[in-house]
């Protein structure tokens, strides 16, 4: 079979995660003009919320449940949104106001990442401790989860398809459309676009630019939290899980051009597919050449790095900057 169906479904979940993360990263970049190196760790915090929900709601006893979603999604959105808001309000905004250079702001986000990973490590230690001492035999089984848990065993399936494969794309779609409507149809959303484009002018018109930026950071964090909930269904839980994922997230944002939310989402999706199918076909080709079974899943970020390099060389402003009318007409697709 040329296209593997299960691979396609897995990819849908993973690519949607990247879509959400690249989109929300782009939002923070548009607002604050600094690439947030802590963004993938935002998602990791969301992932830990799922473990906590599995524990507190007793899902570890009952098995797969929709609870992992309907409880985790809002909790993650809120918690990570607040983390992002704190990062903006008490770190980035005061530093930017003091006139700290972009390098300084970037290293500050790197510092936040270190702090957040440290806090996740402390939480993991705590959780391990609690699980280990628990009289509940089922809970004791969770002891390895805080540092290397696959939580996909607790998610329900829909007609034999894991929920994340359907929910991931759905979340991405709903948030993209929701965001689009919010930005174009509401007064506050319009003010948000105005304040992002020209904060000085917006300020003189009486728009509270600070509020707008705070809301942007909250939403961006919230979306990263949602991404984390889906992400933990495809990846092993680990406090530093964001450190390698950030490569893919940046790749998606750069492919999208770091200037448009829509293209950020597209960039993330493309990177997800590129990584997964790139690995898949490279495995097949190398396998055929060497006659051995080759597993390259751990090297998927090679494709992301390649995408970053190619994009920065060919079109540094990302896909959004390309003249799509001309490309489509060259390809003879103008009518479409």
């Amino acid at each position: 079979m040329v296209v593997n169906v299960q691979l396609f479904l897995d990819t849908m979940a993973y690519a949607s995660v990247l879509g959400l993360l690249s989109m929300s990263l782009t939002l923070t970049y548009i607002v604050s003009r600094v690439p947030n190196f802590a963004h993938a760790t935002f998602a990791a915090i969301g992932s830990y919320m799922v473990l906590i929900i599995v524990w507190i709601m007793g899902i570890y006893k009952t098995g797969p449940s929709w609870g992992v979603y309907y409880a985790s999604l809002p909790v993650s959105f809120l918690v990570v949104g607040i983390v992002a808001l704190i990062q903006y309000l008490i770190v980035l905004r005061p530093l930017a106001k003091k006139g700290i250079s972009i390098d300084g702001l970037m290293i500050a986000t790197l510092g936040i990442d270190i702090i957040l990973v440290g806090l996740l490590n402390i939480s993991a230690d705590f959780l391990e401790d609690i699980f280990q001492r628990s009289p509940d035999k089922d809970l004791r089984k969770l002891v390895t989860y805080p540092r290397s848990g696959y939580l996909s065993s607790y998610e329900p399936t829909i007609m034999g398809i894991t929920a994340s494969s359907i929910l991931g794309p759905l979340l991405l779609l709903v948030s993209t459309i929701g965001f689009y409507l919010f930005l174009t149809r509401t007064k506050f959303g319009t003010a948000m676009r105005a304040a992002i484009e020209n904060p000085q002018l917006a300020e003189t018109l009486g728009i509270n630019v600070n509020l707008v930026y705070s809301v942007s950071w909250f939403i961006a964090g919230g979306l990263a939290g949602l991404a984390g909930v889906v992400m933990v269904m495809t990846t092993k839980l680990n406090p530093a899980m964001g450190w390698i994922l950030i490569v893919s997230v940046f790749a998606g944002s750069i492919v999208g051009g770091l200037g448009s939310l829509f293209w950020g989402a597209i960039g993330g999706l493309l990177i997800g597919f590129l990584e997964q199918f790139g690995v898949y076909y490279t495995q097949i080709i190398l396998g055929a050449l060497t006659g051995e079974t080759i597993s390259l899943g751990n090297y998927r970020q090679v494709f992301s790095l390649g995408a970053i390099v190619v994009m920065l060389l060919v079109a540094p402003q990302g896909l959004a900057s390309l003249n799509w009318h001309r490309i489509l007409s060259r390809l003879g697709l103008k009518r479409w």
């Binding site: 676009r193 105005a194 484009e197 002018l201």
Partner: peptide, 8 residues
Amino acid sequence: TDNIFAQL
């Protein structure tokens, strides 16, 4: 310059 919101 920049006296209007060009994207709006």
